[in-house]
Design a protein around this nucleic acid. Structure first.
Ligand code: FES
Ligand code: FES
Lengths: 148, 148
DNA sequence: TTAATTGATACTAATATAGTATCAGATGAG
DNA sequence: CTCATCTGATACTATATTAGTATCAATTAA
């Protein structure tokens, strides 16, 4: 069971790169080469993040992408929702005719509980927090900590 | 993001059916029709569960499947591992050359923590617990609670 | 003017999930 | 002792998701 797909994985890395240099534009190309992310793939992710107002872009020479939203306000839960759809443990609720009385379904009850646990755990992890941890690690041992 | 696939979903339902009638053999066919699970699909799942010593089978007429392991000892985590592979938040650790120093990778640190939270949450849910909840619900209102 | 860049979108490839089909072998009922 | 009812084993197809590539138009700073 894989929880984070490449989408989310790459998006996190890209956001960390942008958050680290907030205020200046970083091109997709430079992020891609620096973090070993397939260029065109990354561009799609960046565009998606623009649509969700996490970042902004500037076209043309010297253009690129820049942080917009406060990194502390960007949670991994949000990124999962953007790139992998809302966290849901089971799809059973979409099936007709099986759970006539969902409110009383014990399986569903457990499922809902775990769903919210998973969500809240990922909510604790923000881009801002990751960045600070990363910077702290770099301070102690400049060559040890890497983003990816 | 879908956490439980049909594999696991169906396996849970089948185990609940078997646990409810422990001591007697239940055929794949009867489980399939009763719980709306594709017959051949279910058979593969049952065979897999035999290999993992959760259930036993008897061939021939009047044959079928029966609980072997104590339902309280069967956790959803185990079932996820059998049918969806070990819970892992990210696959990054398999990628060479990116995280030269994994021990210090902050992303990995968070990932490991969440992995264990997810695992332990699913570990709390056993077939035995689900069955008791189900039976309790049926006692209160016989028509309200269903397995699926 | 033009090279560097994003916007938009279509396409292919690889993998995972879901479901079906088939046939051999066991076994209890009659 | 045979035969319908089962499981064992395994191969196959279909669908969906994930991953990655390609293309071309529009923008812009040097
Ligand atoms: S070990 Fe995977 S991102 Fe660092
Ligand atoms: S609501 Fe889905 S199993 Fe009951």
């Amino acid at each position: 069971m894989k929880v984070l797909t490449k989408n989310t994985d790459y998006a996190i890395r890209a956001l960390l790169a942008l958050a680290a240099r907030k205020g200046s534009y970083l091109s997709a190309k430079s992020i891609a080469t620096e973090h070993d992310i397939p260029y065109q793939f990354l561009r799609r992710l960046l565009q998606e993040m623009i649509r969700h107002n996490l970042i902004v872009s500037k076209e043309g020479v010297q253009g690129g992408f820049m942080m917009q939203k406060d990194p502390d306000e960007i949670t991994v839960t949000q990124l999962i929702e953007i790139f992998q759809g809302k966290v849901q443990v089971s799809e059973c609720m979409f099936r007709k005719q099986i759970c006539g009385n969902r409110a009383n379904c014990v399986l569903r009850h457990e499922i809902m509980r775990i769903e919210s646990v998973v969500q809240s755990e990922f909510e604790k992890v923000t881009i801002g927090k990751l960045l600070r941890d990363l910077e702290a690690a770099n301070k102690v041992n400049p060559t040890a900590a890497t983003i990816s």
